[in-house]
Design a protein around this nucleic acid. Structure first.
Lengths: 343, 343
DNA sequence: CTGAAAGCGCTTACAG
DNA sequence: CTGAAAGCGCTTACAG
């Protein structure tokens, strides 16, 4: 094994194997061009010396970076699955000998800098928001990227992968209907993304399809535990209170759940409650909180697939997984794998 | 701005400014060697052309990588502050123009590979465990690294940064004592690290110092919400039940907290409860859960400081911050900044 | 203070 | 199938 100060170079391998440097290079990069005897001999030398090509040299010559850029978001309320996504993305990218390069900032200028320095081959964009300027900037310059999460307004170029929020909300409604619930409320907040709208649309479609009411069953300004509790109190005080609630996040669902108990009602029986993201909160709620788990593994795999595919503008919607717990013991049907392509 | 296919090189800047390539290089890397007139002229050309040095070329010539390696852990129960740490570490490293390179695996072989490829200049080690083999391997080969978290047994080379768990537990005991609590229990699990031992030691020292009992007030096999509840039930059933509980994690504390309420006792009044890490759980518990926040910002800053300092074996213990909430409304004293150096 | 030279360690066409 | 040549885009001593 080489010491940092004395790395093994391709020249030493060539000397050791009695061939030229470019033959060693060929063994590494185009093995089919090398006769199998030579290949074996060079292979043993590589093994014997513990040779690994210097990445900078290799990438400089090959005009690539071997790195995928990812901006670590600094949101104060981070998605609870972002760390898992990052892990799985890294693992996926490693399969082809690349790594993830982390940076912060998120402004287009930071991306421009990285591109100008040829520090990365491509980007994975997370935390996309409405009218995200990054997509256009990158697309104009032919910098490869895949967006993890749609942006919602205007024309947003480039491929993306996202949760089918509408689809899973429809399935939640159906599952709650199966359990006998008939007045299913929807609680969330219309924020900087269309995520809320996507989900509320699915909820309403589900209600319509089953002949359930949806009027006056929406709270659209709720995004904390406390607000969830307040919203639930108001709903229960109304003339026709709901017997089920779909919340767009686990914290909101916790607030709703707590208020249900405060009123002496039984969660999951009198009033069902569901959340989103299957965060640690969901398993900590007494009796458990039914929640939608994001398909993080498939997100990571699909992102890298799109990154490496020539097909530039594919968009993939992945189904969420309903994790059924006490707060809404929904019976699961076979997860219909609905991969939907747009454009 | 250069298009990806047509990057601006140092030669074009030189042409544009009417100087040689190495003068441009000097402006970038040793500006003091260049006369200020030339420097300005070259500077304008750099600006005008939007030139940024190619990282691979620069690093190849300078024999460095400009990258800090960090292995993203895949633990199923990740530390709730790891994503924040990663963000802050990245930001800290960027101050000197470097970035974080992410990889997975964690085996020594993966580190060896990265070193052989000269893919990184140094490593930050997280998720350290007892008898972690990485420290020794890296130290023997003079690969710079800093460990985020001690390892606990045997001789572990290299600098590290960690939470002063004993110290903060002592302060928790004192704070609870101030509130009138006299039988303070300690609940946790002796796992793959000495973390538990560190904290239990601080708790016991705190009790001893104040003349409080500690015998039969320890539960050492608890590491889930449910187990926390069971442990608390047993403690409350004992002859002399505790009036306060320090749990080594927020989930455990949640279990304890829930059991307190089940028994009709008031958390924070009849029985105080504290957790660790100030995870989302802590703010979601009814009334709030007092918890110890990890000094993540200082962790990141200190890790990078140690990485860049010649002083190879410094170890830094950083104080935890007590976030006081309803479950144990501890009055905070001035956070004594105790930076403790060992060896 | 400035520039010609050598070199970082590889890969990619391109002859033989 | 193999190797001599050119080059990736920079930096680092080292002359002038």
């Amino acid at each position: 094994m080489a010491r940092p100060g004395f790395p093994v170079t391709i020249r030493q391998v060539a000397l050791h194997a009695g061939v030229s440097r470019q033959t060693v290079s060929n063994v590494l990069n185009a093995p089919h061009r090398v006769e199998s005897g030579t290949r074996q001999r060079v292979g043993s030398s590589i093994e014997a010396l513990g040779y690994r090509p210097n990445r900078n040299a290799r990438n400089l010559a090959a005009r690539r970076a071997g790195l995928i850029g990812y901006c670590v978001p600094e949101s104060d309320t981070p998605n609870p699955f972002m760390d898992r996504f990052l892990h799985l993305l890294t693992a996926e990218v490693e399969r082809s000998g690349r790594n993830v390069l982390l940076f912060t900032g998120g402004a287009v200028g930071v991306y421009a800098d990285l591109v100008a320095q040829r520090a990365v081959d491509a980007f994975v964009l997370a935390d996309t928001v409405d009218d995200d300027p990054r997509h256009g900037w990158l697309a104009e310059r032919d910098v490869p990227f895949v967006s993890f999460g749609r942006t919602w307004t205007g024309r947003q170029p480039g491929p993306w992968v996202d949760l089918d929020g509408a689809g899973v909300c429809r399935r939640l409604v159906a599952g709650l209907h199966d359990l006998g619930h008939r007045r299913i409320a929807f609680v969330g907040k219309c924020g900087a993304t269309g995520q809320y709208l996507d989900r509320v649309r699915g909820w309403r479609a589900g209600c319509d399809a089953l002949g359930l009411p949806s009027d006056r069953l929406v709270c659209a300004e709720v995004d904390t535990v406390e607000a969830g509790g307040v919203a639930m109190r108001n709903l229960l005080d109304s003339e026709v209170p709901p017997d089920a609630v779909i919340a767009v996040s686990d914290p909101i669902a916790v607030g709703v759940h707590r208020e249900v108990r405060r009123q002496g009602l039984r969660p999951g029986t009198d009033v069902a409650v569901t959340g989103f993201d299957d965060s640690p909160l969901a398993s900590v709620v007494d009796g458990g909180l039914t929640s939608v788990r994001q398909p993080v593994e498939r997100f990571a795999r699909t992102v890298v697939d799109l990154l490496d595919s020539a097909n530039g503008d594919r968009c993939v919607l992945l189904p969420g997984e309903i994790i059924s717990r006490g707060s809404a013991p929904i019976r699961l049907t076979e997860q219909d794998v609905n991969e939907w392509e747009s454009r």
